[in-house]
Design a binder for these strands. Structure first.
Lengths: 210, 210
DNA sequence: TTAAAAACCCCCCGTTTAGGGGTTTTTAAA
DNA sequence: TTTAAAAACCCCTAAACGGGGGGTTTTTAA
């Protein structure tokens, strides 16, 4: 028997969800809220295995509610159940700690399926959402980019620059003269098309050289 | 009728996959390769809707193959089909351009289901993989961190610093004296606990302030 | 209303940097 | 064995920076 909490401001929908879950036999709805205001108390009292959470609600929005619950009860899994399918909402939900993301347009039978899958350690999201997440993931962590043909030494020194070290420090650390470091830095600037330490550091981060 | 290509070095498994797909009626296996050496030619000739790709293969490994195919034929979707479920492999596959990731331990019926889902714009991965991706995603893009209580102006100036601008330039851009910029920068340094432009820029990136 | 931030401005001084010009020695490939 | 980078070193100069002072005026929030 899987305990489940529901937070959904649309009363009609919430009742349907309750019914759907209760009738299934595998689920026990331990709380069913119109908004997230009492979510912490309810969670503490009933300790559901998972929570189905709407996003657009009066008072506290669903994403904020996820943060709150996850902070106090990290073991409780929360699945967003919403009409929104924009990257922003998905992204923020995942960041907040949501374990899943289902769209309301899903058929009731599929909802149950998805929940069952999830409980068995499985699919926590609609296919289209999974695709979105993959894409966001891909974008976020784009490739190491062109290496700008930096030599090993140059990369080493660039890294040191990102640590805020001065030429003198870098030189001292590897028993070289500051002039050596300077000429390396000059070469780095030429290769990166920059004209100062801060620009070089910024480029190093932006281009994921570091 | 969905055209599909298979790349899998285990001949027994490959035959089973072929049979499974052909018998289903919805799929037409247009090529079935023991390794990825001829993948580009085969893809060019048959232009499958999607490719099922093993990872561990003699010659070219599956992830390299994905890169090759995606480079020349970005429209072809590739789904990894593998025994590996470690983050590293998943990560690299997604980065290479794989649209899905299925584990070989999946039941044949579920494989068909997953493929069908995928073709309908849906779930391109096993549930456990989706969970992993979510976790990786969460880790990658960790929170915006403490804001260091930077004022709006300070944030503005910090941003300008990351663009490699000098005090003079920043001052000129907003019709302020360079001394004003200097004192703002001083305050930024105090708040970030740094002592130079490059350190400030580095911290800005590392702490995702920018 | 009032006190604290935030934003603004200025001076000094020593250090660091950026860009310009070089030379010599390793190192690695042709 | 030749050759070409890469790495290491040097000098000079002007500009930029960092840290230390000293202030005034707006905003903003109790």
């Amino acid at each position: 028997m899987i305990t489940i909490g529901i937070v959904e401001d649309n009363d009609v929908l919430r009742s349907s969800m309750e019914m759907l879950l209760q009738n299934n036999g595998n689920y026990q709805v331990v709380f069913s809220l119109h908004d997230a205001r009492t979510i912490l108390e309810q969670t503490e009292i009933h300790m559901p295995r998972l929570i189905l959470m709407d996003i657009d609600m009066p008072g506290i929005n669903g994403i904020e509610a996820v943060k709150m619950v996850k902070k106090d009860f990290p073991a409780v899994d929360i699945i967003m159940f919403t009409v929104f399918e924009d990257d922003e909402k998905i992204f923020r939900s995942v960041m907040a700690g949501a374990s899943g993301y289902l769209l309301k347009k899903i058929a009731p039978s599929r909802l149950l399926e998805a929940l069952n899958d999830f409980v068995q350690g499985g699919a926590p999201m609609t296919g289209s959402i999974a695709t979105r997440v993959l894409e966001m993931f891909r974008k976020q962590t784009k490739q190491t980019s062109a290496e700008f043909n930096l030599s090993v030494k140059e990369l080493e020194i660039l890294t040191a620059l990102t640590e805020g070290k001065s030429y003198k420090t870098i030189a001292a650390e590897r028993f070289l003269s500051t002039e050596t470091i300077k000429s390396h830095v000059k070469n780095i600037y030429v290769k990166l098309h920059v004209h100062s330490k801060s620009e070089a550091v910024a480029k190093a981060f932006r281009e994921k050289i570091i």
